[in-house]
Nucleic acid binder design. Structure first.
Length: 427
RNA sequence: GGAGAGGUGGCCGAGUGGUCGAAGGCGGCACAUUGCUAAUGUGUUGUGGGCUCAAAAGGCCUACCGCGAGUUCGAAUCUCGCCCUCUCCGCCA
């Protein structure tokens, strides 16, 4: 969130950002309210100054034994007028606050302008399999006895999944593998709450915009997290860090909960879009001047996972219209899913500049002694269900088995291949 | 869930109606001094907002002692609500 001072002095930039991100923040109204606010503020502060001065005089007069009733009554009247003005001011502040929440982050200069069609594939890795007759993950999962979507549907409805046997272990193995992978590269493992308050979500920019996508527990005033980004980014909420403590690189596993309101359709079958899914998430808190580089290395970290698993992917630089509300720049990582015959987004690596830091109250004391907001970044490293889709579909063999990447062997108890259950027994 | 205690500046910790943005200490910074990255001395050191200034510096004003209301001429200090922490009891994976 930007403050009024910034918006006042960067009006054109903000106006452009709103348009390019296809947001609808009412900048004119904000600027008008800002003018009114400063006008009123000047008045009320002058009156407060007077009240303070006269109150002190009353104190001195009383100490000297003089009578003060008349003056006290006069100051009281002044106080009443202050109260009325303050109330008006509070109203203006609240209105401005409401409007400010809808002002999006400004896209970085390197971000292509336009809608989804302006997204740029910046690089690709690996050879996508494109033969005919490849099975999709649902067929493979059923044949191998490791995935049962209808079982989850019976108890929870659509948008959930049940993994069985080696399939369940595969999920656990992937989580462990990814956590180890990132920890070995300087990220600190964190275990986080899966329920947070609205403030934490607001800080990340999930609220107010994505309210409809959130699972809420009204009785507790808590929300199920849509991603571990929320607890990780809020880890140091409201504190002042020292420059020497930065960068802070965090990684956490968490389940993620999303209502995905209105998202049901043909491209969401199987594990492609779920209400609950597992994800390993990275978050960085960094110095502003290193933000751009940190985004590149963050993206590289997520790519590292995919490379270690030998899965073909491509990196997409999102255009302004596709960029999320709080992001200034974002790379999506997409895995090739041969059975689906399409690319699936498994990671989103974003640089939020100081947008989240302002909302969360994340500052650091710079070497020159000044307080500044730091920069936040996050990236999936990576999301499990679609990774599973790509893995099953990519490593399927003509024999109906699925080979497992060598990197997972230690996490699978040495198992190197998923095979259909023998004699119809359960896997 | 019940009973009690408490939340003050980067940290520790005083402060129960006025001159308190807040003693003292630690830490930080500057200078001085000492035969050296130690010790000592002196000074300095919060944040947000508004106005002023071409800008910066500076200056003036205002707000902030967990959060929000209230009492009062005047609130860190009194009252109410909320949040959080700690201790004891209960419950519990």
């Amino acid at each position: 969130m930007y403050d009024l001072k910034f918006i006042r002095s960067h009006e054109a930039l903000v106006r452009e950002a709103i348009a390019r991100k296809r947001e609808s923040a009412d900048l004119d109204r904000i600027l008008e309210l800002d003018r009114r606010r400063r006008e009123r503020l000047g008045e009320v502060e002058a009156m407060k100054s007077e009240r303070n001065r006269r109150s002190q005089e009353i104190g001195r007069a009383k100490a000297a034994g003089r009578e003060v009733d008349g003056e006290a009554a006069a100051v009281r009247a002044l106080g009443d007028r202050i109260q009325a003005l303050d109330e008006e001011l509070r109203g203006i502040d609240a209105a401005v606050e409401d409007l400010l929440q809808w002002v999006p982050n400004i896209p970085d200069e390197s971000v292509p302008i336009g809608d989804e069609s302006a997204n740029q594939v910046v690089r690709a890795w690996g050879e996508p399999r494109r033969e005919e007759g490849l099975r999709d993950h649902l067929e493979l999962g059923a044949a191998l006895g490791i995935l049962d979507i209808s079982a989850s549907a019976r108890m929870s409805g659509s948008g959930f999944s049940v993994h069985l046997g080696a399939g369940a272990r595969l999920q656990r193995a992937l989580i462990d593998f990814m956590l180890d992978f990132h920890c070995a590269r300087g990220f600190r493992e964190v275990r986080v709450p899966y329920l947070t308050r609205a403030e934490a979500l607001f800080g990340c920019g999930q609220l107010p915009k994505l309210h409809e996508d959130m699972y809420a527990l009204p009785a507790e005033e808590l929300f199920l997290i849509p991603t571990a980004e929320v607890p990780l980014t809020n880890l140091h909420r409201g504190t002042t860090l020292f420059e020497k403590d930065l960068p802070i690189r965090l990684v956490a596993y968490s389940p993620c909960f999303r209502r995905e309101a209105g998202a049901h359709g043909k491209q969401t079958h199987g594990l492609v879009r779920l209400h609950q899914f597992d994800k390993v998430e990275m978050v960085k808190l960094v110095l502003p001047e290193t933000g751009a580089d940190e985004l590149e290395s963050l993206t590289a970290a997520a790519e590292g996972v995919l490379q270690a698993l030998g899965l073909p992917y491509r990196v997409v630089l999102l255009a302004t219209g596709d960029l999320s509300f709080a992001a200034a720049k974002c790379y999506d990582l997409e895995l090739w899913a041969p059975g689906e015959g399409r690319w699936l987004e498994v990671s989103s690596c974003s640089h939020f500049t100081d947008f989240q830091a302002r909302r969360i109250g994340l500052r650091y004391r710079a070497a020159d002694g000044k307080l500044r907001h730091l920069h936040t970044l996050n990236g999936s490293g990576v999301a499990l269900p679609r990774l599973t889709v790509a893995l099953l579909e990519h490593y399927q063999t003509p024999q109906g088995t699925v080979r497992l990447p060598e990197a997972l062997a230690p996490y699978m108890g040495g198992l190197r291949e998923l095979a259909p259950p023998a004699g119809g027994a359960e896997g």
